[in-house]
Amino acid sequence: MHVPDGFLNAPVSIATGAVAAGAVALAIRGARKELDEKTAPMAGLVAAFIFAVQMMNFPVGAGTSGHLMGGVLAAILVGPYTGALCVTVVLIVQGLLFADGGLTALGTNIILISLVTTFGGWALFRGLVMALPKNRVGLLTSGGISAFLSVPLAALVFSGLYLVGGAVDIDLGALFATMLGVHVLIGIGEALITVVVIGAVLTARPDLVYGARHLTPQLTLRTSSTASSSSTKAAV
């Protein structure tokens, strides 16, 4: 999904850069409420893990590959604001050190791979969690479906940006159809990886899954509202 430099014109790249900067500033504000002694190191691990799994391109059809984007995975594990920051750190390191994704396209990539997937995916996840049974299967199903949908959603947003400021005059109908088609396939991989990883963490440490807090209300919900939360959490 990483957009290289040159696909989008300068005005759109500047606009996406400004929107991404503003949204990341909001995510920083939101993340302050999500982060505590336990989730801060967990978020560091989530970012590192997403970087690693993004290296694992899997084949989708002949001659094409895809990899995890990780926005929904991050949002469910550490919360949407913190999750968006995790994926943003991954994108900045990829762009600056690994030349993966353009630099003028960094704002575009943050919007597509971080913001659309974490916030769009999180909204889908919350909706599904409310509709489905409040148990492990319901949670994993919600995570899988929202992870799956987050990939074609990001492909749609890219196509929309191209419609506004694409560098080359092309058949826009073909762009939307091709982008959607290939990213629906990649979304299957996104869903599988997301479900396997969330399932593993749920088994090992259900208390570390932000999106599962409604399943274990005894400690997490109560302590988060009291001022002395840090001492109780440290004792757990």
Binding site: M1, H2, V3, M55, M56, N57, F58, P59, V60, G63, T64, S65, G66, H67, A155, F158, M179, V182, H183, L185, I186
Partner: peptide
């Protein structure tokens, strides 16, 4: 990992 072009590139 697969070295084929990714979805965006393809």
């Amino acid at each position: 990992a697969s070295s084929s072009p990714d979805g965006m590139e393809s």
